[in-house]
Design a protein around this nucleic acid. Structure first.
Lengths: 241, 241
DNA sequence: TTCGGGTAAATGTGATCACAAATTGAGGTG
DNA sequence: CACCTCAATTTGTGATCACATTTACCCGAA
């Protein structure tokens, strides 16, 4: 079932939009990113080029490039036999990711604080409301999407074209695993530090925002420590892939 | 001039080699990475799929994917018209890259210190000899390659599958620009802190190694401050690409 | 000489084909 | 019932083609 042959199908005719971004490849990549971040992809589960292509209604070609782009950031894994799979998590890898997050994200939030205003505070509160709602409702997928929206609304304000992609790469790496954690221990036990972050944004307290983000990340670390081991495939000395 | 049709041309028959790396695509990507890191690509200069393909003796297909992978890490830029070019540097972007390096690399070196021994110290000294040689000789390209080898010999010891790719991404981003800086101000003025790093490795002083790396990065920052502005295309408010 | 205009070449994108390797599944044998 | 064998399917990879868009270049007019 090939997609409607015209490659301009998505490019609406109005020239008002500054970035009407065409290119099927980018659409596929965004779709895959969203799937990773919302936890629709299960770690260890393998995906196929043709499978994704059919699912998205495109030819395997744009999928190939999108997968290659994601795998360049370790968001997808290409095994030695060429098979594609969403990476499995190991205790070591998870520890490294959280270390990296702790190094980058508080600093990014600190920079962002200068560009955040009260309007952002109210926007963040609206997002956080949806976060809380999905938390109590146990809707892990919505939670992950809104939690991502919360953090990156802050980070985006920093206007960094360097740190942002790095942080995004980290999220793409741990998101699928977190989804499985939430599925097992539930999301109720989470007490993020979003409220403190919002307060810091409202009072333009850059240091406070940095600390709130750091605390939020550490909170996630503790959750994982509590449910440590389970679901983590031990680093086994098998033949490397 | 299509490459020899057999895709196994590079895969030697001997099974003794542990990593006989197949896949033309990976070879192309490694080739491009090496070119970026050694400064063979000039910032702002545009490259073409077919051009690289012919240069490397392959079809445009593997190049397409390799370029896509590199551009995912901001090592190459794909403009709105689809044209590929090596990214230009702006003062802001350079500052962000150095900030990120300062956040990640000292920490990575700190972790690596535990896995480095005296044999690594001698290996590093050999590399550093070549660095000094190329510095006094004014061979910027060799300098960049050996300087990269020096740093990543250390970083690799950390065994991090998360931080390493992030740091590599940063190097790929600033390397082409550094090449132009060296070409303008020369390499003689550089006094890296490699000697201190080697001493720290030999005496297993993790903190000392971290500080040496941090000092080395700061040294690079000063060099750029001294020659600030020149070669940096100001962030101009033209139509975004 | 300079500035348009219009044609030709070049470029990225997506689709399709061919092929080798790997996986899968069934069927047969111990 | 377990294990092996072998064929059929699936999958990634690379090449080639078609096409719309963009860029480059050359010629002619002012």
């Amino acid at each position: 079932m090939p997609v409607s042959s015209s490659r301009h199908a998505a490019a609406s005719a109005d020239a008002a939009a500054p970035a009407p971004r065409r290119s099927v490849r980018d659409e596929v990549e965004q779709s895959l990113r969203a799937g990773l971040l919302s936890g629709r992809f299960v770690p260890g589960h393998s995906v196929t080029l043709r499978g994704l292509a059919q699912e998205l209604g495109v030819s395997p070609m744009p999928v190939r490039e999108a997968v290659r782009a994601l795998s360049a950031g370790n968001a997808l894994e290409i095994r030695s036999n060429g098979r594609i799979q969403v990476p499995t998590m190991t205790p070591q890898r998870l520890s490294e990711i959280l270390t990296a997050r702790l190094l980058l994200e508080p600093e990014l939030a600190f920079v962002a604080a200068a560009h955040l205003g009260s309007s952002d505070a109210t926007a963040l509160r609206k997002i956080d409301d949806r976060v809380d709602e999905s938390l109590s409702g146990g809707d892990a997928e919505t939670y992950m999407r809104e939690n991502f929206a919360f953090h990156f609304h802050i980070y985006r304000a920093a206007g960094s074209q360097v740190l942002m992609p790095l942080v995004e790469s980290l999220w793409l790496q741990f998101a699928p695993f977190m989804r499985t954690v939430y599925g097992r221990v539930g999301t109720a036990a989470l007490d993020d530090h979003h409220k403190e972050a919002i307060a810091a944004v409202r009072s333009r307290d850059a240091g406070g925002l940095r600390d709130a983000i750091a605390a939020d990340i550490r909170c996630g670390m503790e959750l994982l420590d509590r449910s440590s081991g389970e679901g983590l495939r031990e680093a086994q000395p098998g033949p490397p892939d």
